[in-house]
Design a protein around this nucleic acid. Structure first.
Lengths: 243, 243
DNA sequence: CGGTAGGGATTGTTGAACAATTCCACAAGA
DNA sequence: TCTTGTGGAATTGTTCAACAATCCCTACCG
């Protein structure tokens, strides 16, 4: 007798696909570097030496260069011919453009919600994580919780491509925050507004939530752009001096 | 006396930066392959052998693999570990998702137009190119003109990232059209609606244009999805038989 | 007929090698 | 003093050859 394991979906096996799907070393190296950049180990403007990192990670230059390619496409690294790869320094124009896209994407996603008390649990969860982080004074977690909150908002659109896009945008935003150098107060300020937006969503009031979110994004952008110009120049100078 | 060439921006020198910035061979190779895929030389589902293409183009395997990475990130190629790279076969879910994003992006861009008779010339130009192509029976040009038209619509948002995103989406759509195998009638059908949308835009009626565009995209998606299911399976079978 | 064990082909990854380019310091000249 | 060459060292760009890992196909065997 032959027993066929059916792909019924009820088994939840698909969730483990990520464990089965082996990744190439280049992708794993890219993952390591991505984390390092996100956590600020590699600072914006810094150069990533092929030799040093290749030796440190124990991979060949060719493989490492493949990893660099991946991250360059995610706008985390900037590749300059014959000069090497650098952690990107987002310009003010980048910040403005990032928020332009966020307004389009996130607002559209939120606008579409209807009074279905279905799966807003994930959003609520992220809001609560943010609250908890603020309560315990864990500013680092607060920042990431906020990012997750917005990713969940975008996920309301139910589009794989939108999720990927937002993921890249937020990764890029992390670079901006590293330049800002004081993200503590920045994120904390928007905590209560997360609740307001969540309330509207749970009430099925899409347009209302959109209105709040739009104002939210406009304020954040304005604050960011304002605090940015000085810092960016300072960071550039610091890097130039260090190198 | 010392004369300093200032970076005043009025010189327009930055515009020529693209001419100075040389491209790596990997990028040039990627460009060649991208064109080949777009024009249907490499059909969806086909495998791209490292050895063959490397020899044909006179580049090493390492360089070629870098090019493959680039195109994989653009969703034109699919990379399967230890099996090689294949021209992607977009699934029906991909088509639906692509149109989901297009609705969000293009509609948002169009919605924002105001009664500024400023720079709609570029859009009008693309519409006329489409008309001309239809008149002379040049179906291939008609398709690309239509793509350009929508790219111009998206460009109304004024966002570099949006432009890049739609560029990738339309490249992916070209793969879908190659599976469809009869794009002639498909594009022709929507020509008059281009004019309607353009009229609303020129009148500064953003919401009106958005409404038309939304219906346009919904119809196109429906037609595409309908004609797709059969074709996709047939193409898959054909490829399996040929290999 | 189904399972399995080879063997050939292709990809994954490495290391070395050389060319091309950039960077830096230092000297020469106005 | 400032600019302008000019070396050499360091780094990247690219190729090549080699080997391991994996996949695919076929032939064999129960």
């Amino acid at each position: 007798m032959i027993v066929v394991i059916e792909d019924s979906g009820a088994t939840g096996l698909e969730a483990d696909r990520g464990l089965v799907t082996r990744k190439s070393t280049a992708e794993r190296v890219a993952g390591v570097l991505r984390n390092r950049i996100a956590e600020g180990f590699f600072l914006p403007g810094g150069r990533l030496s092929e030799q040093d990192i290749g030796n440190a990670l124990g991979v060949s230059r060719n493989t490492l260069r493949e990893a660099f390619r991946l991250l360059t496409h995610e706008r985390l690294l900037a590749h300059e011919l014959n000069r090497g790869v650098f952690v990107r320094i987002p310009s003010v124009e980048d910040v403005v453009d990032i928020y332009r896209v966020r307004k389009i994407i996130e607002c559209a996603a939120v606008r579409g919600v209807r009074a279905k008390p279905a799966s807003f649990a994930r959003i609520k969860e992220k809001v609560e994580i943010g609250d908890e982080a603020a309560r315990t004074g864990n500013w680092k977690d607060l920042g990431t919780a906020n990012v997750w909150f917005h990713q969940e908002l975008a996920a309301l659109s139910g589009s794989e491509r939108v999720n990927e896009l937002v993921g890249r945008l937020t990764a890029e935003l992390r670079l901006v925050f590293h330049i800002m150098a004081e993200p503590r107060r920045f994120h904390e300020r928007y905590l209560p507004r997360n609740h307001e937006i969540l309330d509207r969503i749970e009430a099925g009031d899409g347009p209302g939530a959109e209105q709040l979110l739009m104002k939210y994004l406009e304020d954040a952008e304005e604050q960011l752009v304002g605090a940015y110009a000085d810092r960016a120049e300072a960071a550039r100078a610091a890097v130039a001096a260090a190198e």
